[in-house]
Amino acid sequence: MRKGFGSIVLDVAFRHLAPFMILYAVYVLVHGHYGPGGGFQAGAMLGLALCLVQLVQGHDAKPKWGLGMTAGLVLACVGALIYVGIGLAAFVWSGNFLDYGVLPIAAIPAEARALGILGIESGVTLGVMGVIFVIFDLLTRDKGQGA
Protein backbone atom coordinates (compact mmCIF):
# COMPACT_ATOMS: atom_id res chain seq x y z
CA MET A 1 0.00 0.00 0.00
CA ARG A 2 2.13 2.76 -1.37
CA LYS A 3 -0.39 5.58 -1.18
CA GLY A 4 -2.27 6.37 1.97
CA PHE A 5 -5.91 5.46 2.23
CA GLY A 6 -7.17 8.37 4.21
CA SER A 7 -8.17 11.97 3.95
CA ILE A 8 -7.29 14.69 6.42
CA VAL A 9 -10.10 13.53 8.72
CA LEU A 10 -8.72 9.99 8.99
CA ASP A 11 -5.22 11.33 9.37
CA VAL A 12 -6.17 13.47 12.36
CA ALA A 13 -8.38 10.74 13.86
CA PHE A 14 -5.72 8.04 13.79
CA ARG A 15 -3.23 10.33 15.49
CA HIS A 16 -5.60 10.43 18.47
CA LEU A 17 -6.52 6.75 18.25
CA ALA A 18 -3.13 5.06 17.85
CA PRO A 19 -1.57 6.13 21.19
CA PHE A 20 -4.56 4.83 23.12
CA MET A 21 -4.49 1.52 21.23
CA ILE A 22 -0.82 1.10 22.09
CA LEU A 23 -1.41 2.09 25.72
CA TYR A 24 -4.32 -0.33 26.05
CA ALA A 25 -2.24 -3.10 24.48
CA VAL A 26 0.49 -2.56 27.07
CA TYR A 27 -2.21 -2.60 29.78
CA VAL A 28 -3.55 -5.91 28.46
CA LEU A 29 -0.02 -7.34 28.48
CA VAL A 30 0.80 -6.26 32.03
CA HIS A 31 -2.66 -7.05 33.39
CA GLY A 32 -2.38 -10.64 32.16
CA HIS A 33 -1.17 -11.55 35.65
CA TYR A 34 -4.43 -10.40 37.25
CA GLY A 35 -7.16 -11.00 34.74
CA PRO A 36 -7.93 -11.90 31.15
CA GLY A 37 -5.21 -10.76 28.82
CA GLY A 38 -1.66 -11.71 28.06
CA GLY A 39 0.90 -11.79 25.31
CA PHE A 40 -1.17 -13.02 22.38
CA GLN A 41 -3.98 -10.53 22.87
CA ALA A 42 -1.63 -7.60 23.45
CA GLY A 43 0.34 -8.57 20.35
CA ALA A 44 -2.82 -8.62 18.25
CA MET A 45 -3.77 -5.13 19.46
CA LEU A 46 -0.29 -3.70 18.84
CA GLY A 47 -0.22 -5.30 15.41
CA LEU A 48 -3.58 -3.76 14.54
CA ALA A 49 -2.36 -0.34 15.70
CA LEU A 50 0.55 -0.66 13.30
CA CYS A 51 -1.77 -1.82 10.51
CA LEU A 52 -3.96 1.26 11.12
CA VAL A 53 -0.93 3.52 10.75
CA GLN A 54 0.03 1.76 7.51
CA LEU A 55 -3.56 1.93 6.22
CA VAL A 56 -3.98 5.65 6.80
CA GLN A 57 -0.50 6.94 6.12
CA GLY A 58 0.61 4.62 3.35
CA HIS A 59 4.03 3.26 2.60
CA ASP A 60 5.72 6.46 1.43
CA ALA A 61 4.51 8.85 4.11
CA LYS A 62 6.96 11.46 5.40
CA PRO A 63 7.70 11.49 8.28
CA LYS A 64 7.43 7.72 8.51
CA TRP A 65 5.22 6.60 11.41
CA GLY A 66 4.89 2.90 10.76
CA LEU A 67 7.41 0.10 10.42
CA GLY A 68 8.73 -1.48 7.25
CA MET A 69 8.16 -5.14 6.47
CA THR A 70 11.76 -6.08 7.30
CA ALA A 71 11.55 -4.34 10.67
CA GLY A 72 8.33 -6.22 11.44
CA LEU A 73 9.90 -9.55 10.60
CA VAL A 74 13.00 -8.76 12.66
CA LEU A 75 10.78 -7.78 15.63
CA ALA A 76 8.87 -11.07 15.34
CA CYS A 77 12.09 -13.06 15.40
CA VAL A 78 13.44 -10.96 18.30
CA GLY A 79 10.24 -11.78 20.23
CA ALA A 80 10.73 -15.52 19.75
CA LEU A 81 14.40 -15.14 20.68
CA ILE A 82 13.47 -13.29 23.91
CA TYR A 83 11.32 -16.27 24.87
CA VAL A 84 14.03 -18.81 24.08
CA GLY A 85 16.68 -16.56 25.66
CA ILE A 86 14.84 -16.36 28.99
CA GLY A 87 14.45 -20.13 28.85
CA LEU A 88 18.16 -20.61 28.19
CA ALA A 89 19.17 -18.03 30.83
CA ALA A 90 17.95 -20.45 33.51
CA PHE A 91 20.81 -22.78 32.52
CA VAL A 92 23.33 -20.22 33.78
CA TRP A 93 21.94 -20.50 37.32
CA SER A 94 21.73 -24.31 37.00
CA GLY A 95 17.99 -24.56 36.48
CA ASN A 96 15.98 -26.45 33.89
CA PHE A 97 14.97 -24.98 30.54
CA LEU A 98 12.28 -22.29 31.10
CA ASP A 99 12.58 -22.60 34.90
CA TYR A 100 12.55 -18.89 35.78
CA GLY A 101 12.44 -19.56 39.50
CA VAL A 102 16.24 -19.73 39.62
CA LEU A 103 16.83 -16.36 37.94
CA PRO A 104 18.34 -13.85 40.41
CA ILE A 105 15.82 -11.08 39.58
CA ALA A 106 13.75 -11.19 42.78
CA ALA A 107 14.15 -12.03 46.44
CA ILE A 108 12.17 -15.27 46.40
CA PRO A 109 11.73 -17.80 43.55
CA ALA A 110 7.97 -17.23 43.29
CA GLU A 111 8.45 -13.54 42.47
CA ALA A 112 11.19 -14.39 39.99
CA ARG A 113 8.62 -16.65 38.33
CA ALA A 114 6.11 -13.79 38.09
CA LEU A 115 8.74 -11.60 36.43
CA GLY A 116 9.81 -14.43 34.14
CA ILE A 117 6.20 -14.88 33.03
CA LEU A 118 6.05 -11.16 32.22
CA GLY A 119 9.30 -11.48 30.23
CA ILE A 120 8.15 -14.34 28.05
CA GLU A 121 4.75 -12.70 27.54
CA SER A 122 6.60 -9.65 26.21
CA GLY A 123 8.41 -11.93 23.77
CA VAL A 124 5.09 -13.41 22.65
CA THR A 125 3.70 -9.89 22.20
CA LEU A 126 6.55 -8.85 19.94
CA GLY A 127 6.26 -12.04 17.92
CA VAL A 128 2.51 -11.79 17.33
CA MET A 129 2.73 -8.05 16.59
CA GLY A 130 5.48 -8.49 14.02
CA VAL A 131 3.76 -11.38 12.25
CA ILE A 132 0.36 -9.65 12.02
CA PHE A 133 2.01 -6.54 10.64
CA VAL A 134 4.15 -8.46 8.13
CA ILE A 135 1.16 -10.38 6.78
CA PHE A 136 -0.90 -7.18 6.47
CA ASP A 137 1.95 -5.37 4.73
CA LEU A 138 2.49 -8.20 2.25
CA LEU A 139 -1.21 -8.51 1.40
CA THR A 140 -1.64 -4.78 0.76
CA ARG A 141 1.60 -4.43 -1.17
CA ASP A 142 1.36 -2.91 -4.62
CA LYS A 143 2.10 -5.04 -7.66
CA GLY A 144 5.79 -5.28 -8.47
CA GLN A 145 6.96 -3.65 -5.28
CA GLY A 146 8.91 -6.75 -4.26
CA ALA A 147 10.32 -7.66 -0.91
Partner: peptide
Protein backbone atom coordinates in the same frame (compact mmCIF):
# COMPACT_ATOMS: atom_id res chain seq x y z
CA UNK B 1 3.49 -21.65 24.67
CA UNK B 2 7.03 -21.59 23.28
CA UNK B 3 5.86 -23.92 20.53
CA UNK B 4 2.86 -21.70 19.76
CA UNK B 5 5.06 -18.62 19.49
CA UNK B 6 7.53 -20.36 17.20
CA UNK B 7 4.67 -21.62 15.01
CA UNK B 8 3.35 -18.07 14.61
CA UNK B 9 6.77 -16.66 13.73
CA UNK B 10 7.40 -19.48 11.25
CA UNK B 11 4.00 -18.74 9.67
CA UNK B 12 5.08 -15.10 9.23
CA UNK B 13 8.38 -16.12 7.63
CA UNK B 14 6.59 -18.54 5.30
CA UNK B 15 4.20 -15.74 4.28
CA UNK B 16 7.18 -13.59 3.35
Amino acid sequence: TLGETVVIVVAGIATV
